[in-house]
């Protein structure tokens, strides 16, 4: 058996909640998202949405069950326009064409992308790529969003704008959000509850304050990166 990227990790995410997933590099955060979204099949363990098991099945099954995600390195449909990027996500969720276009226009407006609707995604400015990817994830009508470092590479004002948008999503759309980020400022402002991984294992879970004071968390960060959260 090779390395266990994840071992005995268990977490729950409720609709309307934003859960922060943190941990040093290589602790298994992205692997966990890959497993939940169905891109990786775990050797043991399962993820459920409303009691329906989504692991060990083709990845599109997880999406149909209500899980959408973004990627640490943005993965847009570069040869499609910004609008088509969002429209196709609604279509893939089974929405009719006219409604999918309407939903796309609405989300592009919400994410400040309206004037870019006819631009190929591959030609978008970097700061807008993450917004588009998020609009695409939301367009699926997902009940759970998994966001892998949504603020990476954004400058402070872009990050703040994104934060404001993100914070409103659970209330307006009723989704639960799992967010990975190394930007502790963002995590602390966004999440009431945090889940901490190190070496593929859960080392702590609780409110931001509880986690911050947890000696195991402090050790994990000091021990690996030498930088405390």
């Amino acid at each position: 058996m090779g390395l266990r990227a994840l071992d005995n990790v268990s977490l729950e995410l409720a609709q309307g909640e934003i859960l922060g997933l943190i941990g040093p590099n290589g602790s298994g955060k992205t692997t966990l998202i890959n497993v939940i979204s169905g891109l990786l099949a775990p050797t043991a363990g399962r993820a459920r949405v409303d009691g329906t098991v989504v692991t060990g099945k083709p990845a599109h099954v997880s999406a149909r069950a209500g899980i959408a995600r973004t990627f640490q390195s943005v993965r847009l449909f570069k040869a499609l326009t910004a609008r088509e990027n969002v429209e196709v996500a609604a279509l893939a969720a089974g929405v009719r064409r006219v409604e999918a276009k309407r939903r796309a226009d609405e989300l592009l407006g919400e994410f400040g992308l309206a004037r870019w609707h006819n631009v190929l995604a591959g030609a978008l400015p970097y700061g807008l790529e993450r917004s588009l990817e998020m609009a695409r994830a939301i367009a699926t009508g997902a009940t759970f969003l998994l966001l892998d470092e949504p603020a990476a590479g954004l400058d402070e004002s872009e990050g703040d704008a994104l934060l404001a948008l993100l914070a409103g999503i659970p209330a307006t759309r009723g989704c639960g959000i799992l967010v990975i980020d190394h930007d502790m400022r963002l995590i602390m402002r966004l999440c009431r509850r945090l889940h901490v991984l190190a070496h593929g294992q859960t080392i702590s879970e609780g409110t931001a304050d509880e986690v911050r004071r947890d000696p195991r968390v402090i050790e994990a960060y000091l021990g690996s990166a030498g930088a405390a959260a």
């Binding site: 891109l39 449909f77 040869a79």
Partner: peptide
């Protein structure tokens, strides 16, 4: 449209349900 999306990124297409 869904196929062209999968051409650009198969993982992303899968995770929107294609």
């Amino acid at each position: 449209l869904r196929l062209r999306a999968s051409q650009d990124s198969e993982p992303a297409a899968l995770t929107i349900g294609v």
